[in-house]
């Protein structure tokens, strides 16, 4: 196990709850899968798998509401193939397939994250944990990203910085920083048909501890 620590912050965030995705509502804390996405945006190879250990909440949880005109449909692959074969034009008209959807999103967020990675069975003989740890810390220090990490949705960019020391959460002594967050999405099980996994999330002294993926706390 090789641990990393980093600070993640941004103006807005939307970690959409599964049950509330028609009109998106964010959870109050990032899910482990959202944090994993941020880590992978910095450095990832099939040889490694990121696991989140803890999320420290550094700012009070605040929500704000945004309603946008969104496109209802997805692009049908079938019509692409038809146009590829027969020609003709392909377009979708936002006015005829418009959905006004509200999003309840988090405003002004800052987290410290503890995570580590493990080598997967796709790691080759030349792969060592130290190599990937070096790559990650070098990229983090230099501000390098594969693509800009984001806080749940791509319109909410995440900024990341190395964190040697994690300060105590300002929520440590407040009821807000010590509460049961209920069942939270842990991650998707990609080897098993994208099946969702859940765990019972709790904030204690402003910190959410995340169980290991194979622990009994993670329900599939």
């Amino acid at each position: 196990m090789y641990g990393v620590r980093l600070k993640i912050f941004g103006d807005y965030a939307c970690f959409t709850r599964q049950a509330l995705k028609g009109e998106r509502m964010s959870g109050s804390i990032p899910t482990p899968s959202a944090v994993r996405g941020i880590l992978e945006a910095i450095a990832w190879k099939p040889a490694i798998a990121w696991q989140v250990d803890a999320v420290h909440v550094m700012k009070p949880v605040r929500f704000t509401n945004i309603r946008r005109n969104e496109l209802g449909g997805k692009i049908p692959v079938r019509s692409i193939h038809d146009v590829m074969k027969k020609g003709g034009s392909l377009a979708t008209f936002i006015e005829s397939d418009r959905q006004q959807r509200a999003s309840l999103v988090l405003a002004d967020v800052e987290y410290y994250v503890e995570a580590h990675f493990v080598l997967t069975d796709r790691a080759g003989p030349g792969d060592s944990p130290g190599k990937y740890l070096d790559i990650f810390t070098r990229r983090l220090r230099k501000g390098q990203v594969y693509h800009r990490p984001y806080l749940g949705c791509r319109e909410f960019p995440a900024f990341v910085a190395p964190a040697e020391h994690i300060p105590a959460s300002p929520l440590a002594d407040s009821p807000e920083g010590n509460r049961d967050l209920g069942w939270m999405l842990y991650d998707l099980d990609y080897r098993n048909g994208y099946a969702p996994m859940f765990f019972r999330a709790k904030l204690e002294k402003g910190v959410m501890r995340v169980p290991a993926p194979d622990s009994p706390e993670v329900r599939r």
Partner: peptide, 13 residues
């Protein structure tokens, strides 16, 4: 935009 497209896009996959 040709009518062919309209017919195609309405076609369920």
């Amino acid at each position: 935009h040709d009518l062919a497209y309209k017919a195609l896009s309405l076609d369920p996959a």
